[in-house]
Every structure is written in C-alpha cells, then in structure tokens.
Amino acid sequence: MRLKTREALEGYTFSTPAFLLLFLVLFFPFAYVIYISFFSKTFGYEPVFAGLKNYFLIISDPVFKYSLYISTLYTVVAVLFKLLLGLAFAILFAQEFKGRTLVRTVAVIPWGIPLFVVAALFFWFFDYNLGLANAILKALFGVKIFWLGPDWVVPSIIYVNVWKGIPFFMVNFLGALQTIPRSLYEAAEIDGASAWERFRHITIPGIKYVMLIVCLLSTIWTFGEFDTIFFLTRGGPGYLTHIVPIYIYHQAFSNFNVGTAAAASVISVPIFLALISVILWALRR
C-alpha cells in the first residue's frame, strides 16, 4: 500500500512540470476561447457579455458557410488524392527496380520540407509569366493559366497539399505493406487469384488500420492547415480559398472581432474531437 502511494507520488512529480506548462499555454487558452466566444470583444475594448450572439452572427454569415464548404471540399478531395497516390507510390516502392532508393528518397523530400517553404516554392512554380508550371504548359499545349486566379486556385491549393502530403501516406503504407507475409501472396497465386483479387483480399486488409489512422490524421491536419494557403492566397482571390483557419484569422486580426473569431474556433472543435476519438479508439484496439 505504501509502495503504491509512493509510486503515485513519483508519477505526479514526474508529470507535473509538463502538464502544468500545458495547462498554461494550451488547456487554459482552450477553455478561454470557449469563454470569450460568449462575449462581444474588439481588441482594445472591454468585453461585453453577448450570450450566443457571436454564434448567430457566424452561422448567418455567408462567408463562414462558404468557409465550411470550401474547407470540407479541400480536405475531402486532398485526402482522397493523397490516399490513392500514396498507396500507388507505396506499391511501386514495394517492387524491386534499379534506382529505387534514389527515387524513394526524392519522393520523401516533400514531407521533410517546411510548409512555408512549400508555399514559397509553389508561389514561384505557379507564377504566371515566369513559373515553370506555365513554361511546361506552354511548351506542351501552347497555353498558360492563372494557377492562383479565380478559375484554378482551388485545384492549385489542393495540388500543393497533395504534393506535400503524399510521402506521409506512402511511407506509412510502405511500412505496413512489409508486415504482410509474402507467403500469403504466394499461396493466393497458386490458388489462381488475379492481381486485383490479391490486392483486394490481401493488401487492403493487411494495411486497413494504418490506412484508417493515416487518413484520419491527415484529415485533421488538412482541415486545420493554415500555412500554405495563407502564404499563397491569403484566402483569396475574393473569398475563394477562405478556409476555416483563414476565416478565424481574418475575423481576429483583420476585423479585430475576437468574439466571432472565438466562436468560429469553437464551432470547428467538435469536428476535430470526433476524428481524434476515432484515432484513439483505433490505436487502442
């Protein structure tokens, strides 16, 4: 009994510094954002209690509705492409061929590059007059497009996100693929299973849980991603790429409307909580 108490005491001693700090810089701010979302507050002025007014303001704001829509579209399409291409890349690198190590190393680089550099990179890559993207289009098809203009900006930011995000999927899938015993494939081949059947009934079940976790993590991070879009478009042109994080930023730092920005932050929390709970569940089982 004494030993148990002692161990508990040790446990608290060891973990208190970390969680005390986290309380100060994370849990308290998190509670505070909920609190302040019930106040009308502009930087420099005293907050005035407003009840649910901020929430009604936001829900009736067409820009916020559009933000939710474009964030969801951006996230779903980007994660889908990352899943498919990440899986394709992983299957490619599971094969043996000359130069595999080199190509695989290059394919992983986007993961290692900071998002702000990825943004700068594509800002230049997509430049209308001098960018490489248009130089290639011009050479191949004789056309140039405004990559970050109204018509193409949404596909372009998705392209950037997919380019950056594939290696995370690929590397995790590759690791999972290697845990599938070769003998399963050999047995299936002897039984006359086609390549598609082997993929469907051996590969997919073998990497199912990794797929689930990777997709959920990526969904959360894509939905919460701020850096590349802020650097590339600032949410523009117009409101076209006004994803939820950009909306929150503009409410707080352009319109100086802390209350509505806080309400917008709080509204997006349940989405994240639900996704994270599924991850926790998947990691536990």
Partner: peptide, 17 residues
C-alpha cells in the same frame, strides 16, 4: 495525444489575447 493532433489554429485567438 489530443493536444498533439489538435490543430493550433483553434487556440490562435486566445493565445494572442
């Protein structure tokens, strides 16, 4: 784990405030 996975944009406003 929650704290790590959670996007930091959510606490952007209170952190500044």
């Amino acid at each position: 784990l929650f704290a790590y996975v959670f996007p930091t944009v959510v606490i952007m406003v209170p952190i500044f405030y």
